[in-house]
Amino acid sequence: MKRPRLYLQLLTYAALVVAAAVVLYPVLLVVKKAFEPGRQFALSASPIPTTLTTEHFADLFGARGGHGELLFLHHAWNSLVAAILTTIVGVSLSCTAAYALSRMRFPGHKAGLITFLVVQMFPATLLIMPLYVLLDRLGLLNSMVGLVLVYATTAIPFCVWTLKGYFDSLPRELEEAARMDGAGAWQTFWRVMLPLARPGIAVTALFSFMTAWNEFIMASTFLTDDSRYTLPVLIQSSVGQYSSDWGFFAAGAIVTSLPVMALFYVLQKFLVGGLTAGSVKG
């Protein structure tokens, strides 16, 4: 391959270095804050800490809440339960529908596809107020069940749409062979297609886990009792209106995001495929 002129190469590098610096700067600031003493940012633009400390992490894991519980672990547990339950509800209710939308033809097939797509694209914040009123009536505010139901409103359409995309990519021959051997619709699905779809199901499950793990505004609205908070609400409240502890925030942000960031890097190529495939077909 022929190389372009030197100044063009240098320009390319310069642009990429600037872009990378802009991307990394805020991240480095947080890392710096996490290892630097003090609750406020130091008045300095440098992303490199001058003194190092682990006090924020000690505080993060050692701080106790109003009921004597270990603050961070308690809320991490809340987040974990909410995200896992949401994933289970989302995936288990969606598999069959995704398969039907992918393979079967029936009146309303197209309308069904469009409905799931539109619901998946439109923001859950549109439903936040009616959901609040309904959950209040049912006495489900401040409860894990209520939060999981709320998260399921986004998780189910997402799972249906993504899994449908995965079923579309599976060859029809195996299915037809199973039919020839006398398997019914359910057996074909359960014994043949579902095992084949395992990678797709795993990816979908991990994405709905990440979405629930990262969700902030619903949790902050529906959970008013501070012992029920999920991690995003805890982290946001550490830099709230009245008091802010950016050291706690930075340590908490790093511990909370690292696992999902790792997941994101493993899964990102599936995400892009799924998102654009979905919208092109719609």
Partner: peptide, 8 residues
Amino acid sequence: FLAPASLA
């Protein structure tokens, strides 16, 4: 097949 997701 569609019932669970649709009902939800």
